[in-house]
Design a protein around this nucleic acid. Sequence first.
RNA 1: CGGGCUGUAGUAUACCGGUAGUACGCUUGAUUUGGGAUCAAGUAGACUGGGUUCGAUUCCCAGCAGCCCGACCA
Length: 416
Amino acid sequence: MGRMKQSKLFTKTRKDAPKDEVSKNAQLLLRAGYVHKEMAGVYSYLPLGFKVLKNIEAIVRDEMNMLGGQEGILSSLQDPDIWKKTGRWDGEADEVWLKTKLANDSELGLAFSHEEPWARVLSEHVSSYRDLPLYTYHFAPKFRNELRAKSGLMRGREFLMKDLYSFTKNEDDLNTFYEDVRVAYENIFRRVGIGNNTYFTYSSGGIFSKWSHEFQCVSDAGEDTIYIDTEKRIAINKEIYTDEVIQETGLEKDRLIEAKAIEVGNIFKLGTKYAEALGLTYKDEEGNENPVVMGSYGIGIGRLLGTVAEILSDEKGIVWPESIAPFKYHLVELSGGDEAVKERADALYQQMVERGIEVLYDDRDAHAGEKFADSDLMGIPYRIVVGKNSVGGVLEVVRRSTGETLSMSYDEVLGS
RNA sequence: CGGGCUGUAGUAUACCGGUAGUACGCUUGAUUUGGGAUCAAGUAGACUGGGUUCGAUUCCCAGCAGCCCGACCA
């Protein structure tokens, strides 16, 4: 599954990033061949980037399923009718929409979110309190008419998002699930490697609830400013940073540290607004008709990938955590034309492939410096070097994150 | 959307009112091979449209595109 000869990989690394790409995450991902910039705020994923994206997706999916989430995938072309019912077709939301038309001139929206479509889908399947609660999610592209795309993958006009929606009978059930999601989100950010830098953050709410919550990953590349209690691991977004809020959240002003941060996730209590507008109701035990209570929970998958690249990188390149790296091992042969060495490396690759070990094999006829530089840039967690200096029995393995050399036996590598 | 800056080979850049030079890349050959090799020969370029001019890649205008600052941002 996860194996590839680098000589066959169509993407190439490059020394220089395009001059119009300033953000670190995009520079690294472009230079290493993970993504292609299609236009401002629009990136395509190439084989390496796609693998990372899928790995992140798998972690998120795992956590969603453990919450009881049911995965589907709703369409990107959207029906204006349901958005008109909730008042989000025109008016304020109009700025964010990318709209298009059919040949017969009828309008369509390109999905910027999916509350309305999911609510309508559920309205066809929910009629009794026995049908609730329900949790649905999908990974789907979002299109937003950003006035200013920026910061590489951080703010795009098209991006992949995981959005989860909860449908519950009442607010208590919503609150319980909301807390479960919070834990799941913390798991996700820990599992993709940014747990230590990511804070549960109070942000502005809406009509229904006082606050929403964001997961903010501290980075100078971030657009948001937050105030963090590093011990409690809780923060407040600058948008709502007042003495009153500090008090209400139980934090102390002189313990809060200001920092720039990237919003990698967001959870939000929606209440019954959408359900009421779209007729999503259920009958309770007494036969009364009630609107379903909703919540929405988003993670920008592409933004998360960009955030990891941004945070976990050094002057040489990206440093992927093993959990989402495109490959676990980067096998680099330094035969320099020595057939015996080449055969040794080929044989090792073959053995790894047979055991289903994730490996990228740099079998190119290139100099050591170039191969090492590429390897550092691509950021695969473990580099195995097979060259003239390496002797039989022991493998020379370098850990990308620390640069330390580990001597591992064939069995240790092949058994992993 | 307001303001600013910028558009030259695939990438990074230089010079110029008289059609463009360098580096990397790529191709061919030779020599090389444990931290981005060497030599030789090739390959490839002025965002688009107008204007000024004998002549525009260069100056002017417009458009388009990109980046940055701000505003905006379930």
